[in-house]
Simulated scan of single mutants.
Amino acid sequence: MALEPADEPARIAELKGYGVLDTPNEAEFDAIVREAAAALGVPIALISLIDENRQWFKARVGLEPRETPRSISFCTHAIRGPDVFVVNDAKSDPRFSENPLVTGDPNIRFYAGAPLRTPSGRRIGTLCVIDSTARPQLTERDTARLALLAEKTMEALERRRQRLASSNPA
């Protein structure tokens, strides 16, 4: 995997500024992952936030763990680009074919992740969908739908941050 971008410390600081890591489930985020899974017809959907060492799931459907190591996360790759990142068949992709999330549970074959972009443009995580079956390329409509749900996720994160700031004035 490539070295981290120069703005990684600022990206991490911005993520932590949302005060969302290691918080309980919230209905608004749970609804977004359910909508993503249903809209794209996949068994797994996640709101994944990437800190220094892990990807932590603010909301998840179809996956039990609350987090996985960043070193094996697909979402780390997804936040490096501005657009939806798609892996049609992880088993045949040399970047992922030996990944324990591919060779073992949850047996990822298909992955699509839309970056969660803050107002400053930093990508703090993804809204992603996963299937244990390889899939052809996403349609333009599905790509747009995933990107729109990622925007909806960021709007919810912004509202959450504003509520937190107003309840804890400096």
Rank of each mutant, 00 (worst) to 15 (best):
Y111I: 04
N25L: 15
I47A: 01
A2Q: 12
P106N: 03
P106H: 00
R70E: 06
V129D: 04
E14W: 05
L101P: 02
W56G: 01
L116A: 11
N99S: 00
L49E: 00
E26F: 10
P115D: 02
L40M: 01
P100I: 03
G121I: 03
A156W: 10
L21D: 02
F96V: 02
Q55T: 08
A10K: 13
D22T: 05
A6N: 11
R109E: 10
A78D: 00
G19W: 05
D83A: 08
R60M: 05
E4P: 07
D89L: 04
T139K: 01
S167Q: 13
A144F: 13
I79S: 03
A156K: 09
A90D: 03
D89Q: 01
A147L: 11
A36I: 01
N53P: 10
V84Y: 06
Q137L: 15
W56T: 09
V87L: 08
V20I: 10
V33W: 08
A36D: 06
A170Q: 15
R11W: 08
S92K: 12
L15S: 05
R95P: 06
A147N: 06
T126H: 02
N88D: 13
A112H: 04
A165N: 14
G104K: 01
D142V: 04
S48C: 06
R123L: 01
G81Y: 09
A36G: 05
K58H: 07
R80V: 09
E98Y: 14
L21N: 04
T103I: 07
R159F: 11
E64M: 15
N25E: 14
G113Q: 00
V33G: 01
C128I: 02
L146V: 06
A147W: 12
K152E: 14
A27D: 12
M154W: 06
A2N: 14
F85Y: 10
D22A: 11
A31S: 10
T68Y: 07
A144R: 08
D30E: 10
T103M: 03
T68E: 08
L149T: 03
E35Y: 11
R161G: 06
T118R: 00
T68N: 08
Y18Q: 04
A10H: 13
N53Y: 14
R95G: 06
L21R: 04
P115H: 07
R135T: 00
E52D: 11
L149A: 03
S73D: 04
E151I: 14
H77Y: 09
R135G: 00
A45N: 01
G41L: 02
E151Q: 13
Q162P: 09
A147Q: 11
G41T: 09
V20M: 13
E35G: 15
P94H: 07
W56H: 02
F85S: 09
S120E: 11
P169K: 00
F74H: 01
M1F: 13
S132H: 13
D7R: 10
R34C: 13
N107R: 15
G121P: 00
L15P: 04
A59I: 02
T68G: 07
D105V: 14
L21V: 09
A150T: 12
D7E: 08
K16S: 14
R109I: 11
